[in-house]
Design a protein around this nucleic acid. Sequence first.
DNA 1: CTTGAGAACCTGTCCGAACATGTTCAGAAG
DNA 2: CTTCTGAACATGTTCGGACAGGTTCTCAAG
Lengths: 239, 239
Amino acid sequence: MFGQVLKLKHERVAEQLAREIRGGRLALGSQLPGEHALATRFDVSRNTVRQALADLIRQGLIETRSGKGSFVTFDGRTIDDRLGWSRALAEQGVPTTVRILRLELVHEPELAERFDLQSAECVAVDRLRSLDEGRAISIERSLVPAVGPLRNLPEQGLTGSLYAALRSAGLTPVQGEEWVDLSRVTQSDAELLGCAPGDLYLRTQRLSRDARGEFVEYVESLLNPDRFRLHLRFGEASE
Amino acid sequence: MFGQVLKLKHERVAEQLAREIRGGRLALGSQLPGEHALATRFDVSRNTVRQALADLIRQGLIETRSGKGSFVTFDGRTIDDRLGWSRALAEQGVPTTVRILRLELVHEPELAERFDLQSAECVAVDRLRSLDEGRAISIERSLVPAVGPLRNLPEQGLTGSLYAALRSAGLTPVQGEEWVDLSRVTQSDAELLGCAPGDLYLRTQRLSRDARGEFVEYVESLLNPDRFRLHLRFGEASE
DNA sequence: CTTGAGAACCTGTCCGAACATGTTCAGAAG
DNA sequence: CTTCTGAACATGTTCGGACAGGTTCTCAAG
C-alpha cells in the first residue's frame, strides 16, 4: 500500500523537513536550524544532514547560502508540476487526495495514429486531485497501453500510484514531449473542479516513452493556475 | 579570466574522466576502473571519487550499477545538442517584428541575491513582439550581465539578436531553470500589448547559465495565450 | 557434471573529524 | 563617530574508515 518505509536516513530527514516546510511550520523565507543542530536533532551525522538538504534543494523547497544558512523557498501556495521527467512524482507538493473518476479499457485509434502507437488499446485513468481541505485543483487524464498487468487495472483497481503500476509493468518513462497552453474549462469539467465554465486553466499534454521508444503514457492535465506552476530544469553543468 | 582553474578536487577528477570519455579513450559501454582504483590514481579519497562520478552521472556520461561498476553511456555525439529546452513557439510561419522598449544599464541587487550572481550590474533589454499586421503578442524582458562587450550595448544599440550578442560575449546558455505560470497583465503592460488590464497571459521566467555556471540571462516573458504554446522535448533514447 | 558455499571483488550508505571559506557583529583602535 | 579586527558561527570540501549489500567467480562437495 502507501507509506513505504524510507530506510535511508537522509531520506527520512529530508522527508520530515519537507513535511514541516509544506505544512507551513517552516514558513517561506525562514531559516532552518544549522546543520549541526539538525544533526543533533535527528541523531545523524552532519554529512547525512547535508545529503538531506541537497535533496530539498533539488526539490526547490530550500536554498542554502554559504556562511549564512538554509532558507525556505517554498511559498506554500503553488505546486510545482515538474516537466523534468527525472523528478520522482512522489515528491509532489502540498498534501492532496486523488479520486479516480474513470478506470477502463478504451480504444484510441486517433491517439495511435497521431503518435504511431502499436496498438490502439489503452487503459484510461482519469483522476481528480483535491486539497485535503476539499477543494479540487486539477484533473489528470492518462492513457497507458493495455499490456501486461496494466490490462487488469480496470478489474483490480488502482491501489498505488499510476507510476508505480507503470513501473511494475516494466514501463519507465525516460523521454518524450510536453506541451503547455491555456484552456477554457468545459461545462462538465467545471462541475468537477468547482469552478465556472470558461475559466482559464493551465493545460499540459505529455507523451512519454521508455528507453526503447515504446509508448508509456499520454496524460492531459487541467491545472488550477492559482495552485500550479510548471518548473523545468534543463542542461547540465560541466563541473 | 578564461580557463578558470578548477580548484575542487572532485571537479578536477570529473573533468579528467569526462575528457577521456568524450575523447573516446573510454568507449561507449566500457567499464571504468573501480572507485578504489580511481581514488589511488587521482590520489583522493573514495568519497571524492564518488562525488566526481555523481557529476558524470548527472551529465549522462556514465551510469553505475551496484556491485558491478561504472560504465560509459556517452555515445560520442556532441553533448551540447542534447539540451532539454522549452521554447515558446510563435505560430510557425507567422512573421513577427520586435521593438526594443528599453536598453540600459541597471542595478539588480535583488536578482543578484536571489540567484547568487557575482555582480548586480546588468543590462536590461525589454522587447515588444508584434505580428506584422500590428497586433502585439508578447513582452520579453531580459537581464544579462554587464560584462565585456555587453556593457556597451546601451550606447551601441542591439543590432542582431540578443542571443547573438551573448554568444559574441562568450556567454552560451547550456543549463538553467524555467518556470511557467499564469499572470494578470498590469495596466502599463496592457497598453503595450493592446489588451485589457487584468487579462490572463502566460508568464515564463527563465534563468540561464553557461557550462561553468556563470549567469547568462534572466528573461521574463508575457505571452498571449492565444498565440503561444510551450513545447518541451525531454530525455533521450538509449540508442 | 551440477550445485552451492564462500572469497573477492564491486558500489551504497553513514560516520566523525579536520580544515577552508563565507558572514555577522561586538568591541577595540583610530 | 568611523573603521578595522577578530571571535563566533554558518556552510563547503575532503578525508579515512566502517559496514551493508550486490555480483561474479572459484572450487570443493555432492
